[in-house]
Each structure stands twice: as C-alpha cells, then as structure tokens.
Design a protein around this nucleic acid. Structure first.
Lengths: 346, 346
DNA sequence: TTGTACGCGTTATCAG
DNA sequence: CTGATAACGCGTACAA
C-alpha cells in the first residue's frame, strides 16, 4: 500500500512519526543490524507509510558514495556492447547500484568529456572499452581516484585493470583453422582502426599467424570497413578489384561476415565452396544464415558482469583478481571448407 | 594542459588561487554572464590549472537539480530500443546532461524498482517505454513530481505525455498493403503480449483492419513468439500445424520476419511467390536480405531525441508540444507479392 | 559586480 | 542501542 505524499518527505518527518531521531531512521534503513528489531520495524513502517524516498544527492554528499557506476562505450549499435552493458547493469541492479551510460562513437575526445562528466556526477566506478586511451584520460582518472576497469582487452594489454580476451589470439585461432583446411591465400576485412585497439590487435595477430604458417599477407589482402552492410559489400568489391580473390576471408565480426556473404551470394560466388568466411561474435543470427556462419564466440555478457563485479569489489574494499584473459571458442559451422582447387579459383 | 592534482580540489581552493570568493567561482563557472570577463578568465584559468571538477552531489543538493535523466527500457537486445536510447543520450550530452539507464526485461516489478531507484538518485526527468503502466508506478511518479515521458505509443494512448506512433495504424497499413495485393488469408506472428502494449495495439489494429476488408482472422491465424530466431521458426511451424499456411504473414518486427524467411527458405517455400512476409522496423539488414524485406520504417531515433527534448524543456520550464503521433513509412521491397493461385497453395 | 552566510538532506562521530 | 550535532561541498539570497 503506497500512500501518495503531498510533498517531499524528509528523514526528519519519518523520524517524527516513528518517534525517534533522524539518526536512528538513517541507521534503521541503511544498517538494520545496528538497531533493535522493534525500532527497525517501527521506522520501516513509518517510512513506507509516508512514502519516504531518501534524497540521493544528500546521501551521496554525506556518505561520499553515489551508488552509481558509469560506463562509456563506443556505440550501442554494436550488440556486443549493448549485450555487455545489459549484463553490467543487471549486475549493478542486484547490488542496488545505478548505471550511468554514455557513448563515444569511437571519438577519443567525446570519451574524455563523458568520463569527465561522470566523474563530476560522482560515479563510484567506471567501465571503459579498450586498453589504450589518451594520457589526458588516464591523468583524469588517477587524479579523481575513481576505480575503473577497461574491457575488451586482455589484462596484459595495459598496466591498468583490464578484462577481456586476447584479440591477437583471436585472429591466430581463425588463421590456424583456415590454414589447417589448406588455405594459403587468406584476406582480412578489418574494422576501422581509429580509436579501436581491438581491431589493431587483430591485425597484429593476423600478420603474426600468417607468418608462422609461412603464408604471404600483402597489404592488398587487407581492406578496412565500417559495419554498415553497404560499406562491407563495397569492401568486398574493393578486394576483388585488387586482384584475384583470396580463398578465405577473415571478417572483423559477424555483421561484416554477413555483409560478405550477401555480396558473395549476389555475385553467385559459393560459400564455402569457392570462398570461406569466418566471423567474430557468434551473434544469434549467425547459426541461422545459409550456410550457418563459422565464427568465434566471445564472452560478451561475462565481460559486463565481471567488470561490474570488479568495480563493486574495489568500492567495498573486497579483494579481487581479474582473469588474465577470457576464453574464446571457435564455433565450426558451414562457411569454412578447404579451398577450391586451383583451376576453380573465383 | 591538465595538471595532476594531488587530492580532491574543492571550490575553496580554486577561489583562493584565483584570489576571489567561492561564490564568485561558482558564478563564474555556472553563470558566466553575471561576472566580469577578466574575473571569469582568472577563475577559469585557476580551475583548469587545479583540475577542478565540481562535486555533483553537493551541487545537486544545493541547486536541487541533478543534471541527470533516467531511462528505463525493456531490453537493450532489441535495436529499436538501443537506437532510441543512443539518440536520447546524445541529445542529453549536448546539454550536458547525463543518462541513467536500466532495463526491465518486460517485467513490471523490475521496472517499478528501477524507476524508484532513479527517483531516489534524483533524476530530473524520466523516459519510459509504453503507455500503460501499473497504478503504483504512476502514483510514484506523481508523488515525486519528476517530469516523465512515455514512448513508443501515440499521445492519445495515455493521459500522460507520450511520444511515438500508432501501433494500431501500423498493422492497418500492413494489412491494407497485403489486401491490396489480393491476399485474403493473412496470418500474424506477434510478439509476447506480457507488459507490452505495442504488441497488444498491433493485434487490435490487425483485427480491425481485417474486419474492414471483410477478411476472416481466426485465432489459429495468430501465433505468439519471443524474438529468438529459434522461437520464431518454431512459431512458423506451429502455424503450419494449425492448418494450411496463410498466403501472407505479418511479423512483429524485422527479426521475426527474418526468422520466418529463414524457416520458409529451409522448407523450400518461396518468398514472396508462395508466401508474403512483412516486417516492422526497417533494420539495416532488411534491405540486404534475399529477397529484400518489405517492412515499416519506424522513427526510432526521433523518439529518443524528442523524448530528451521534451524532458529538457519541461525541466527548464520552456513550453513544449508533443506531436500527436509520428509518421510511419511502408518500405516496399521484395517479400510481398500477390498471393499464389489457389492450386499452388503451400 | 563581488563577498558573506546560510541552507540543501543525509550520514558519521561521539556521548550517553 | 540511541540521540545530538557536526560535517559533506556547493549554490544563492542578501548585503555591500
């Protein structure tokens, strides 16, 4: 039964109707263990009857704790981020914490501004994406003393707390798979490198893996694209323009892979008979494409959940360890196969 | 040039190094017009030099304004919401407001709790999804006096400020199109109705439109599904089990439409030759499916932006009008065609 | 135009 | 276990 209060109820009022002091009300509500059961019941009843809702700002000012954590991600358009954010927020909710969210659109300055604003709002902790940020940002973070955690990169990628997987290893796994099938001419359809260390790490991993297999990887075999289907299809054609098509393509993610499949299909190129394609992310739709997409499953929700847990632990001075890196899983499906015989090159 | 401060800088310190009073610093920073240009410059310099960041809680307590708006959406997994949220946040960012975000997973109780938490945190305004909420929620909202706006429904759907389009009209447009092509047996693959007035309104619109066209719509022609591809495909088969397939299917959204197309394809059912399908949302991928998906384009970002603008206006006591409803657009592509002749029924 | 002094609503400290 | 009281850091009448 909620009663509609006529005006803002303050703690004083609750205290008065419960016949105790404001201090006791505060304790009864925030630290029930410190108060006698009867008193506690009395206070709770009064609070509920009056519809008392504590004033967050006052509480934050007095307790020096806002019960809010911030998150800044490049975009919500990419489901890997919205999934991670969803998990992050649900974990916070369970501890009665609130999430402040902002997007940077892969712009370092916007990210800086958003982080600054969040610090100003008094967040108790901050989740960032990527392990390489400008010095100004790190300075700001250190100056404020706000606990923060970086995501989507392995711990070793940064001296600061970081949680994610190794993007270098990711492309290695893909190349190993493809090379194992017999591919020798592998191309990469990468994302835009600007302010994106995940993409850069994958490039590094790709080059290293190809070298290990003693396979050539000329610059012409790497094209860059954003994640709009149109752009991806254009990237596909761009690669065709640069010479005979590779027999396999490593896509930056499942959306890119989808774009590649669509373009291949519309050109009558058979996947995987004539062209193998590997995605990253294992979006739900990946399993349902024709053919179903071979991809790498990445721990999206885990990243969000662990980031929340790490920050919560830091805030409450509980000891925490971050895993060195999260596991990746190659999901073998229908878009990879041995390369076509020479005389059947695309 | 950012200097790393050793500890928390308060306004006092800035005042001291600028050689003015704290009050002047506050004014210079928040209301530059009220201060002489030289003084203002001096203060700004000192603030920057010290890396001063105002304490949000203290500011909120004193000014009775948190500069934060809350948003509660069912899920971030549906891109219509993540798109709208993205637009909402960007609009806030432009006015130096911060967004608090929580998801309800279509659960009324969770939504209530999240709203309550946000009010407690002192949000200056709130964005909700849907125009039908529990009485408890409206009571809470009214008691707190926090401006709020409902989204994804037309203004007429609620006595409270609401911004969106008419879901009834949406299905009418679709049915008109399909009936115009000659379809007489039209089915609907709807979303789950639980705490989702959008889905319910579409059902109402569907029934009304079919009636207007004097077309039958037995209950067997309506199946419900969540938005996982697996579930959608199962829903497709469920409809087949109920009798001969309709010649056209109205999908709750593009994801559902995609699932239907995948299932049809894997059964060798030709779209649109044997079966027409219409989606809702016009996701980016819709135009790239085979065949490209006929769908309704909904104003996702517009909803987010307008919601932000409405709340901002309310907060600053500016006059605002909300549009009665936002426009929908039928995007004709390749998944709709006249029904097959009788002897070619699926 | 600028400074003084108080209040914002809560929590934490310290007696009792 | 409970109550009085002093912060918490800033904004803003009001006075100068």
């Amino acid at each position: 039964m909620t009663i509609k209060p006529r005006a803002k109820i303050r703690i004083e009022e609750v205290a008065r109707t419960a016949g105790v002091s404001a201090a006791t009300v505060s304790r009864a509500l925030n630290n029930p263990a410190l108060v006698s059961p009867q008193l506690r019941a009395k206070v709770e009843k009064a609070a509920k009857k009056l519809g008392y809702v504590a004033h967050g700002a006052a509480r934050a000012l007095a307790s020096r704790r806002s019960h809010a954590l911030g998150a800044v991600v490049p975009t919500l358009g990419n489901t890997i981020f919205s999934d991670a954010i969803g998990a992050f927020q649900r974990r916070l909710e369970a501890e009665n914490y609130t999430m402040l969210l902002a997007t940077s659109d892969y712009d370092e300055e916007v990210e800086y501004r958003n982080v600054r604003t969040m610090i100003e709002r008094g967040v108790d902790g901050l989740m960032l994406v990527g392990a390489t940020h400008g010095k100004a940002l790190y300075d700001l973070l250190e100056a404020s003393g706000v606990p923060f955690v970086q995501t989507w990169a392995p711990a070793k990628a940064s001296p600061y707390p970081t949680i994610g997987y190794d993007n270098t290893a990711l492309t290695r796994i893909v190349v190993d798979h493809l090379a194992g099938l017999g591919h020798r001419d592998i191309g990469m359809v990468a994302g835009l490198r600007r302010n994106n260390d995940r993409v850069r790490a994958r490039l590094v991993g790709m080059r290293a893996a190809m070298r290990r297999h003693r396979l050539p990887l000329p610059a012409s075999r790497i094209v860059f694209t954003d994640y709009r289907i149109d752009a991806v299809r254009a990237a596909f054609r761009e690669m065709q323009r640069r010479g005979p098509m590779p027999t396999a393509l490593v896509a930056n993610n499942d959306i890119v892979a989808l774009g590649l499949m669509l373009e291949a299909q519309s050109q009558g190129i058979r996947v995987p008979r004539q062209l193998s394609i590997v995605g990253v992310g294992d979006l739900e739709v990946a399993a349902h494409l024709h053919p179903p997409l071979t991809t790498i499953r990445t721990p999206k929700q885990t990243i969000g959940t662990l980031a929340a847990e790490y920050l919560l632990a830091r805030i409450h001075d509980r000891p925490v360890e971050l895993p060195a890196e999260l596991a990746l899983e190659l999901v073998l499906r229908g878009t990879t196969a041995p390369p076509p015989r020479k005389d059947k090159t695309v």
